[in-house]
Nucleic acid binder design. Structure first.
Length: 625
DNA sequence: GCGGATCAC
DNA sequence: TATGGTGATCCGC
């Protein structure tokens, strides 16, 4: 069938779109014997014409244009002499090579189709039929279902088209959490400081375990997997390598129920990376994969030959990241998830299309109430509140403000986000939403009082002292580990507020007062730390602190460090601060003195492993397996 | 610093 | 008929 040039162009353009529609988990296992061409057609036809599809199409066109710009830039660069860039790249590679550490044995373990596996334990009959877990979108599915092309992240109705017999189960999150805990109780014996990367993944450093038991890593992991299977009936896959990045890649090699060990040897690692498709590396997704492919980089080995272009095409951070991919470098440290510092707390939800202003406000209030719960649970306030909306067209917008104080109560969350919502309604008259979310950033931790005392501040006594039983200790060395090195992360050590008091007004008020006080203090500590002035614990008596003076980080003037004066001054200073007025009309183009953003990207600054967020796995409501 | 975009799970 | 929620990071402006 002959097609007109215009039709042909559409067909070509939709090739990338079809690839995109296949979803982000294309590289997952269980898809080897699937006819991707056929699956792609079914997904495409099931999606065609929907609002979701149209949005994906628009995004795909944008990406195609972005790639064209990248290619134009590359063509320009090819005309220049890039000897200097090549030399810089080589110097950087040499520098990285010096940092290579092959002394550690890092293991990444991954439970196979975790949620599905847990469901099968309860209903063995499921083993022989294709089924998925999740509602409108699949969170995971068993290997039977994967043979039909079903995978996580796929819309339920699309999965049904691929596999009409597919059984859909609802999520039982508590069940998965309990089972995950069983697994953790076993792996803790192999590395007491193992790192939960998500509900069904963990990193271990078994160097010490192997040394102590005089056992080879491969054998230790075989034993670990056998033990997990015997005791929990869950099968896991594992990767063994010299660092976390490689171990993660390796755990996918022999999935499911297998393991793969990459020798901790430079040549072996370089050879392994040389033929590895970029997409297999954590951090390279569908978009970056396409961009890299466009400039000629298909495998990690290809990175080297294009090293003189990469910084200019993708930025310094991406350059550094790619160089580490080429060399097969990664972190060798593994640490408990709780030791990572949380950066935000947020909630969002999807609902039937909504455009009525009153309804939208109700939804905002409900969202604020939901966020308050999370803020209380995690014991944080936020200095910044961010509103997220998704239109019925699937376009996403975010707006943020800085309230005059750190907030966490639904009332305040609502108060400060409502103007943003109103402004969006003006911006998009009659806007129809399908999602709304609120997120707090620039968090202020509600630290334990003795932590505050450690920094030299005193606390007003409250009735809560009765249930806190904190004795001001002079042993600073112990606290140093838990407070200085990981300032805001030890959520679990804070006493939680008794449930029965939560909604008692009097108690609530008291709690708020205390939180306010702690917040102000911790804000101050935060600011001082920010200004590079290390807070040195004063081992002497507390009264000396009160006589100290300090430069206010806001106005810069010296102030008495006494608690009362301190609080009063901070309040005054904060109220003086000009906060961006959200109700203000849009007079944006007035400011022509836009200061250029400081280019902070520093070569050699190791890019933090994307994703794998720490955070308390228990708090994850939804996690794809 | 803000908003958009990408990524992981 | 119809396509998720939580959290992190990076980039351009």
């Amino acid at each position: 069938m002959a097609e007109s040039p215009a039709e042909e162009k559409t067909v070509v353009e939709h090739e990338t779109l079809k690839y995109s529609l296949l979803g982000p988990s294309l590289t997952k296992s269980g898809q080897d014997n699937v006819d991707q061409q056929k699956v792609s057609e079914i997904i495409y036809n099931a999606s065609k014409g929907s609002k979701y599809f149209n949005n994906e199409e628009a995004r795909d066109k944008n990406l195609t244009q972005k790639i064209e710009r990248i290619l134009e830039k590359k063509a320009q660069l090819e005309k220049l002499d890039l000897a200097s860039d090549r030399r810089k790249a080589d110097e950087y590679i040499a520098e990285l090579e010096l940092s290579r550490d092959l002394s550690q044995v890092v293991v990444h373990i991954d439970c196979d189709a975790f949620y599905a596996a847990v469901e099968e334990l309860d209903r063995p009959g499921l083993k022989d039929v294709p089924f998925a877990v999740g509602g409108g979108v699949l969170t995971t599915c068993n290997y039977h279902a994967r043979k039909f092309g079903c995978r996580s992240g796929m819309a339920g109705f699309v999965a049904k088209k691929l596999c009409p017999e597919l059984i859909m189960l609802k999520l039982n999150f508590d069940k998965y959490t309990a089972k995950a805990q069983e697994v953790r109780e076993i792996i803790v014996d192999y590395d007491p400081r193992f790192e939960s990367a998500s509900i069904d993944e963990a990193y271990l450093n078994i160097t010490e375990y192997c040394r102590r038991n005089n056992i080879e890593p491969e054998e230790a992991v075989e034993q670990l997997r056998r033990e997990v299977h015997e005791k929990t009936k869950i099968t896991i896959s594992a990767g063994i390598a010299a660092n976390a990045k490689l171990a993660k890649i390796c755990s996918n090699k022999n999935k499911p129920n297998g393991q793969f060990s990459l020798p901790r040897d430079r040549n072996a690692i370089m050879a392994f990376m040389r033929d590895l498709p970029t997409r297999k590396v954590n951090g390279v997704g569908r978009v970056f994969e396409r961009e890299l492919d466009a400039v000629g980089v298909k495998t990690c080995g290809d990175i080297y030959q294009y090293r003189q272009y990469l910084a200019k095409l993708f930025g310094d951070k991406a350059f550094a990241y790619l160089m580490q991919c080429y060399l097969g470098l990664g972190r060798t440290t593994v640490q408990p998830a709780e030791e990572y510092e949380r950066k935000s707390v947020g909630t969002e939800s999807t609902f039937g299309e909504m455009s009525n202003t009153a309804e939208l406000r109700d939804k905002l209030l409900a969202t604020a109430q939901e966020l308050e719960k999370d803020m209380v649970r995690t014991q944080f306030k936020g200095r910044t509140i961010c509103l997220k909306v998704k239109l019925h067209t699937f376009e996403v917008f975010t707006r943020q403000v800085i309230p005059p104080k750190a907030i966490y109560l639904a009332h305040d969350l609502y108060k400060y986000s409502l103007p943003m919502l109103s402004k969006l309604e003006q911006e998009f008259p009659g806007m129809k939403l399908r999602l709304m979310g609120l997120r707090c950033t620039h968090l202020v931790s509600m630290k334990k009082p003795d932590t505050m005392a450690f920094f030299g501040f005193k606390r007003k006594p409250t009735s809560l002292d009765a249930i806190e039983s904190d004795s001001p200790s002079t042993d600073t060395s112990k606290r140093k580990a838990s407070t200085l090195s990981t300032p805001d992360s030890n959520e679990e050590q804070w006493e939680s507020w008794p449930d029965e008091l939560l909604f008692e007004d009097a108690e609530r008020q008291e709690r708020e007062d205390e939180m306010q006080e702690l917040e102000t203090l911790s804000q101050e500590i935060d600011k001082r730390r920010h200004h590079g002035k290390e807070i040195v614990p004063n081992p002497k008596k507390g009264e000396e602190v009160e006589e100290e003076w300090w430069d206010c980080p806001i106005c810069g003037r010296p102030q008495s460090a006494s608690e009362k004066a301190f609080n009063e001054h901070i309040d005054l200073c904060l109220s003086r601060q000009t906060i961006r007025d959200v109700v203000q009309e849009t007079t944006e183009s007035k400011s022509t003195d836009s200061t250029p953003a400081p280019k902070k990207a520093r070569l050699g600054n190791e890019k933090k492993e994307r994703g794998g967020l720490p955070g308390d796995p228990k708090q994850r409501r939804l996690c794809f397996g």
